[in-house]
Each structure stands twice: as C-alpha cells, then as structure tokens.
Design a protein around this nucleic acid. Structure first.
Length: 463
RNA sequence: GGCGCUGUAGCAAAGUGGUAAUGCAGUGGACUGCAACUCCGCCAUCGUCGGUUCGAUUCCGACCAGCGCCUCCA
C-alpha cells in the first residue's frame, strides 16, 4: 500500500515518503477573509480534505493546517469601502467560511492559524532574513517608501525552482509597476509600513504589517516545522506565492526545503471562462448552497481529477445531483453499517494513485449497485465496504430517507401534504380509479415529487 | 517572449503499446393497471497529419484549436 502523489516541484508522480510516519504534516493555503468564498476556493479545501482522509487511513498521525489570512490590503479596502471595523469583516467572513466548509463535508483541520496571531514569528523571520543578507530595508528618500523590507531574490541561487522560472526571461513589471525602492525588480515585500488608519504592529522597521507570502512561511515553521511533507494550494499560487514562501523559509532555515511534496489543484471555470471580477461570473459557495446540497458540490469537485481544469455549469450540478440520487436510491432502505475500509479495494487503490477520485467514485457506484442486489450477510459486508469508501470521499454522508426529502429549491408541498396525497392515491388505486390515482401522481410530479411504488408501499422523493 | 496545460461518445470523466472504465442523458426489452424504481441490453475507434512498432487513442514530430501563469488571484 503505497501512496503516489504528483509533486509539482519534480513535475512527476512520486512515491510518498513522510519525514515522520508517525505524524505526517500538511499545509494548505486558506482564504483571505474579505468576502464569501467562491467555488474555486472550495476546490482545494475539498481536494486536500480528501487527501487528509486518505492520509489518516494510512498513517497513525496527520497534522493538517489550513490558515486564515486575516490581514491583507484587500481586507483593509473592504473595511474602508463598507466603513466596518476590520475585525468585524474578518470574523464574519471566517465564520462564513467555516460554515461553507462544513456544508462541503470537509473535516476541520488540526490547526487553523490566523495571520494576525503570528506577527512576532513573522517579524522574527524577517529579522533572520535581514541578518543573513537575504532581505533589506528599503533605502529611499521618499517618505512613503520607508518602512518596507524586501526579500532579495538574487541572494537566493535556487529561486525559481518550483515554477521553473527565470526572472530575466519574464516580463518584469508586465502587470505591476516596479517600485523604485527595490534593488531588483523581482524582489518582493516581506514587511510594509502602515499608516495610522491602517492596522499595524510595531517592528524594528516601524509600524507596519506583513506581506502576504510571509504569513504562510512563519505559520508553517511555528506549527509544523522547518520542512513539512505536503504543501498544497491552487495552481495559480505556484508563482509567486509558493515560490516566495520557499525563498523565505529556505533562506531563514539554513537551506532546508520547505516542503517535500508540492501539490496544486487546477482551476474551476464557469461556462468555459475563468471566474473574474470583470466578467462578474463568480459562483459563491454560499449561493450555490441555496440551490444544491453541499454534497452535490463536493461530488462535482471530486468527479474530475484534482489537477485538471474543471468547468462548472448548471448542467454539471444537476447531473451530479441525479447521480447522487441514484446512489442514495441503491442504499435506500438498507440498514446502515459500520464503516469498513477495504484498503485493497479498487476504490482506495485509485485514491492512492495521486488521488484518482473519478475512479474511486465509479467504485462507489459499483458497490452501491452490488449492495442493492445482495442480501443478508453479503449485503452487510458490501454496505460496510461502501461506507468505508464513501467516508474517505466524504460522500453519502446522509441518511437516504433524509436525502430524498431535502429541499430542492422549487418545493411547493410539505411532507405532510405529500403524504396526504399519497394516501388519497392509495385509496383511489384500491378503488381501481386509476384515472384519479394518475392525476394525483401527476400533480405531485408537477410539484417536484416522484413516487415509487413497491410491495412495501409507496416511497417518494423530491427531484 | 518565458514557463505550462488541454483536446476521448449529446454532456461529464478515467485509462492503457494489443482493438476504450464509469456516471448523466438517450434508447430496446423485462417488471408495472399505467408509470417511477430496479433488472437485462444498446449507444465512441480517442483533434488533424506523419513517424516508430507486428500492432498506437496510448511513444515521437509537426500542425490545428482552446486555455493558464509571468508579482490581486484557489
């Protein structure tokens, strides 16, 4: 049973070997809490949650950390825009984030570090970098430039190892003007000054706040150590964010690598286009949850391989919902069973192969179908295996009966009304008044309720 | 310009040097008073053109078409 993971820094699938098999360490970049998260933010959370579950099934200990970035210019802007205190912004949006993550069946990480609670560690790291000649305070006569501390990219010979970029060949400043106080165009901010109106902390370079990249480096060092097993995040974070994290941590920690495995999930597009402010096509998890159960969103995310791009659309969501209906349909009426992971089953084996969730899901389907056709002890065993696999995937976590009564967004009838109608139809059937029975069934169907007759009686479900 | 990704059935999505998992949709049949559910079955030659090979969707090359990153970004 060996886990293979695609390592972005090596650009190939590799056998995963933890530093300490007793305690695997994983860090994933979490959200900047200035707004509700969109479905793109949900992908890494769901993907790495699934990996977390796989790791926990293999190793006795796993420490998973996912941060909250609660100090950032975007947050400050939002605060100004709404004239709301910055703490209120970060608290309400981090709370909302946690709610959304629960809806997506993600487990709570072991550590949830907040950037603002690690300012001393960050300052410490900057000081170390300055001492070692990897960082410098901006030297400028311009008042606004003072108080910046920058990382000196040329001081690190291996810079660019993750993204395989040669800064000379990049279009430096293609999108952002190069600040005049930088010694080198590629240098990035470790610490920046804060005005009286902006949140700030005292530092050797004056009152200021940390740069984005610094947060993760400092929090990883504090909670997980100098070198961790797995560092995850979205594909777009490879450069500059992760590259800069490597630079900071590696240079501050005597050249030790920051992470042995770098993993990056692909993007989610909407109707073929990237989500962007200009297109106004963000899909907030919160909004989608108004229309779809969180498990449908999770299913969609896991239905394609985490490294490929995924195109979100209404059709995809609706189709995923129908599939889950079908899955729940197979186990409806089957007694719940203890979770029992078959670690040599095809589903788990697929997950060990760089988290091949589409194949694991197909196995889920095969098992559910088998459960439906088996009975007795065989059925119990299959149900246990199904439960074992679905628990790793974080799917089929609800009671089937409840699943089928879940609100579908267009519900016109209450459970009582539905059951009343079913009674009436039952009577009509007994009276051989099929016209009336069919009429009732049609009315229910029009109201989004499908009936399923069986020997044991009539079941219904919303669809 | 630099780095990189993708192109498999109506849709979604795995995969392999030896003639293509799975789901949704569709469709034929069984079951049903009729349906729904369920069950049995059907439904693709893998962007194009070359090359390597006994044999390629899978390796190599070219081309075509999309797309991402290059200091906000999951």
């Amino acid at each position: 049973m060996n886990l293979k993971l695609y390592n972005s820094i090596a650009r190939e699938k590799q056998d995963f070997q933890p530093i300490d098999p007793q305690n695997v360490t994983m860090y994933v970049c979490g959200p900047t809490v200035y707004n509700y998260v969109h479905i793109g933010n949900a992908r890494p959370a769901v993907v790495f949650d699934t990996l977390y579950r796989v790791l926990r099934a293999i190793y006795p200990g796993v420490t998973y950390a996912r941060n909250i970035t609660d100090i950032d210019d975007k947050i400050i802007n939002k605060s100004n825009e709404l004239s709301v205190d910055i703490n209120e912004i970060t608290e309400s949006f981090s709370d909302a984030y946690f709610e959304d993550m629960v809806a997506l069946n993600t487990l709570e990480p072991d550590v949830i570090p907040y950037a603002t609670q690690h300012i001393p560690e960050m300052i410490q790291m900057v000081e170390t970098l300055v001492e070692k000649g990897h960082a410098y305070p901006a030297d400028s006569n311009v008042e606004a430039d003072k108080g910046h501390v920058l990382f000196s990219v040329p001081s690190m010979s291996k810079y660019g190892e993750l993204s395989k970029r040669n800064l000379e060949e990049q279009e430096a400043g293609a999108r952002v003007e190069v600040a005049g106080y930088k010694q080198y165009a590629g240098d990035f901010v470790l610490w920046k000054p804060s005005s009286e109106k902006e949140p700030g902390w005292a530092s050797p370079w004056g009152r200021g706040r940390p740069g984005w990249h610094l947060e993760c480096s400092a929090m990883i060092k504090k909670h997980l150590g100098d070198t961790i097993d797995i560092h995850g995040g979205g594909h777009d974070l490879i450069f500059p964010h992760h590259e800069n994290e490597i630079a900071q941590s590696c240079c501050a920690n005597d050249g030790k690598p920051l992470a042995n495995f770098w993993m990056h999930n692909g993007f989610i597009n909407i109707d073929g286009e990237k989500m962007s402010k200009s297109l106004g096509n963000f899909r907030l998890v919160r909004d989608l949850l108004q229309q779809y159960p969180g498990e449908v969103l999770r299913y969609v995310i896991l239905s394609s391989h985490y490294r490929s791009e995924q195109n979100f659309s209404k059709e995809l969501l609706d189709s995923a919902w129908r599939t889950l209906d079908s899955l729940y349909g197979f186990i409806r009426g089957v007694a719940p069973a203890e979770s029992h992971l078959n670690s040599s089953g095809d589903g788990f084996k697929a997950l060990l192969d760089d988290l091949n969730t589409p194949v694991a899901i197909s196995e889920l389907y095969r098992l559910a179908k088998a459960v439906n056709q088996a009975n007795g002890a065989e059925q119990v065993a299959l149900m246990q295996e199904l439960k074992g696999l679905s628990d790793i995937l974080g799917l089929l976590q609800q009671d089937p009966e409840q699943w089928f009564t879940l609100a579908r967004g267009n519900d016109q009838l209450s459970v009582e009304q539905i059951e009343q109608q079913i009674q009436a139809r039952q009577q009509a059937k007994q009276d051989k008044d099929f016209a009336k029975a069919d009429q009732i069934r049609q009315q229910l169907l029009d109201a989004g309720v499908v009936l399923e007759d069986s020997r044991e009686g009539t079941k219904w479900r919303r669809a």
